[in-house]
Design a protein around this nucleic acid. Structure first.
Lengths: 254, 254
DNA sequence: CGATGTATTGAACTCGATCAAACAGTGTGG
DNA sequence: CCACACTGTTTGATCGAGTTCAATACATCG
């Protein structure tokens, strides 16, 4: 378990990007055709990794950046006591493995939530990353800044919000991100466990479970195992934005 | 209150960097002499801002990046309900105003904690920021990545740690950063209020106050108003790293 | 001085954690 | 096909860390 897969270079690497179903959301889509060829030479497709397997671990040397091709993964920081903190969930098109670039080694560990595959963009020299593909520089930076904004937003969520608001935030944010990645924005497919959600939001599993149940009883969402459908987005947004007012149902409303 | 100061270009801009007491910690120290001249032309020194005044606000257009020259500032996110979240405290040499660059407007607000001054590095075009001074590119990126790692670390602090651990983290981290900036690492001068510390750590003011008192009674730190001296760093580190064990004194140990 | 912002301390309360147990899927192997 | 182990999820009952409310102390400054 948790072994790193060996790298397999595809013969058809040149065509791979054209055929890639994540093409439209991949940051390489911003390259001009002449650059695209050089880019493809740097790209290595890795064999899929299974649920629970690691893409890399905190401490590993960084020699490349990854773009998630299919599936979904979680990134987490390892704490001194085994109490990890999930820092994010990633979807196809997302850039992975940029944290700790300046230290030349990963600061986080990335683990597959389901069978997933990535494109690995190799660099001879880490300092090259921003020089090799000038056209990609802006895209990569945009991604880095988006990541920073997300992390700061999480500071607000974790530092200030009630459990209900955190959960509402998670559902709305996941919905938004799925939409940005070309997926349905009302039916959310949770590839992570309740435990992962709880960890990410700084809550206990039981709390996550209870809130989901309450949201369902209030007919704001519909929950079926790992599939969550947003029924009443307005009320969910109200729970997220309002600190008071909109409460989720009562103990017994029969 | 809270008005932005007008910009004053110093005649002696060329010498300013040489004379600057933050020179050794400023990222411009990595420039070669030929670049340094071009750099100085881009630098504008702003008149000092007083405690409570804003350097910029969330939503303002970004047309430059700042380096803190003297004093200290806090950055915070504004929440929909007036409940802000402080995302960081900055010391001389720190780069400020990089969040939201890809959106071309600030995502956070920066406010002086004491009389402070900054160097403003102007850019004609935001996309220039990483092209104008190739030698600075790495330094600026290092700073950005360091910031990202800090933000993620805060996710762990806010998501997983007890109030005691958060406080220990804050004291140790502040101490470390002050040392990196060439200041004493055992006597910490807190330029922010208890309220700010509480906000930053996701706690109530009263909790911060109580923990400081307890830490003092246990002879781990000495508190005198805004000045905190670390007496027993080992025990403080134990509180930070251990989740259990090392507890801070008892109610009454007389 | 009094006035104001900041800090401490005490008492009561609450949200969410923890503990405990049952339940639901999903294999796995006889 | 069923018994089983195993992992993930739900639900209930209890507990406690930290919040909230309230009052007081302290520092600084007009």
């Amino acid at each position: 378990m948790n072994t790193l897969k060996t790298i397999v270079t595809l013969n058809a690497a040149t065509d791979a990007c054209q055929l890639c179903h994540a093409k439209s959301v991949c940051f390489s889509s911003h390259l001009k055709t002449e650059d695209l060829h050089r880019f493809k030479d740097a790209v290595v497709h890795k064999t899929p990794i299974e649920r629970g397997e690691l893409l890399f671990m905190a401490g590993d040397n960084i020699k490349s950046v990854f773009v998630l091709h299919s599936g979904s993964v979680k990134a987490y920081l390892e704490s001194e006591d085994g109490d990890n903190q999930i820092t994010g969930f990633y979807l196809p098109g997302d850039v992975i493995g940029i944290h700790g670039i300046e230290k030349k080694c990963h600061t986080d560990t990335v683990e597959a939530l389901e069978t997933s595959s990535v494109c690995e963009i190799r660099f001879n020299n880490l300092d090259d990353i921003f020089d090799s593909f000038p056209a990609l520089q802006k895209e990569l930076l945009d991604f880095i800044f988006k990541e920073m904004n997300h992390d700061q937003e999480m500071m607000l969520v974790l530092g200030k919000m009630s459990a209900d608001r955190r959960m509402a935030y998670f559902l709305l944010d996941t919905s938004k991100r799925m939409q940005e990645h070309g997926l349905s924005n009302s039916r959310i497919n949770l590839t992570m466990t309740r435990h992962d959600i709880a960890n990410y939001l700084g809550l206990a599993v039981e709390t996550v479970s209870r809130i989901l149940t309450r949201l369902q009883k209030s007919e704001i969402i519909h929950v079926d195992r790992r599939s969550v459908t947003i029924i009443n987005r307005a009320r969910l947004e109200k729970i997220y934005s309002c600190s008071g007012n909109e409460h989720i149902g009562h103990r017994n409303n029969h």
